[in-house]
Amino acid sequence: MKSPILQAIDLKKTFSIRKTWNKVQSFEALKGISFSIEKKKTLGLVGESGCGKSTLARILVGIVEPTSGEVLIDGKSVQSMDSSEYRKKIQMIFQDPYASINPRKNAGTIISEPLVINSTLSKQEIRDRCLSIMSEVGLRPEFYQRYAHMFSGGQRQRIGIARALMMNPSIMICDEPVSALDVSIQAQVLNLLMKIQDEHELSYLFISHDLSVVRHIADDVIVMYLGEIVEKGTRQQVFYETKHPYTKALLESTPHIRPSEVSSKRKLIRGEVVGHVSVQGCSFQSRCPLVVDRCKTEKPELRQADSGHFFSCHVVQ
């Protein structure tokens, strides 16, 4: 079996919020997340807002420190790497193409920034690399001097991708890279992501709330709910041999495009994500259609259904 390129081992993150006066409330954004990504593969991460996807992404690229747990790249702990070595391995693409690039800089400066910070290359060398990456992601060379506000959303996202590619990383964290884009632009950017993945032998962690996008691009999928992994497995296992009631609910809630597939008697789950109050038992109990007494007292552990297919539920067998 191949050794994974990125491994997360029992990542936990607790934030403390200062409420009025000196009452400090803490909430667990991540409650022990473990997964691994293999070389050249895509791991899809699905979950609703508040499930901890963004916190996880930020821990992996090293802007947020985990409370406990470890991130390994090529079997080596990131804490033992120096900053520049770490950045060369892992880069990130952001969700909002309007907020993620500096509005006061031109495209060339934005794309070159990682190399300006992390390398000793000359200006000319950086510029050459920048132009070659730009042509690779479909940006014309004359865009080099253009300022951010002159680009459309899709072009901005290409700038973000080019910037992440500059360091020639082996892992890319894609945090909702297409959710802010229009359908036709979304398809262009997805195609681009798949193309550069093959050409640069990249591994992706692809975070999205859009199940159809994840189904299209991912090899393996994990589903998160309130800071925990509730189901993980291959794309086939998670989407077609679904076990966990939350994953089922997500699939049921996603609108179908084919009129023939629209079922009239779909089951919707009730209620909403309950804020970060620690509850006894399963965190999905308040919305789960299958809830039994045991769910309210005992926390389900991840169980194996098939080889590589895990889920956490007491009821589903």
Binding site: I63, F94, A99, S100, I101, N102, P103, N118
Partner: peptide, 28 residues
Amino acid sequence: NKEYIIASGTFGASHLRQMFINIFPNIL
């Protein structure tokens, strides 16, 4: 807290760079 500052953080931008090169022109 804008994403472009966080993005620069992921490339290892120093505090000085963040303050004067990235943030300053945007609050001018």
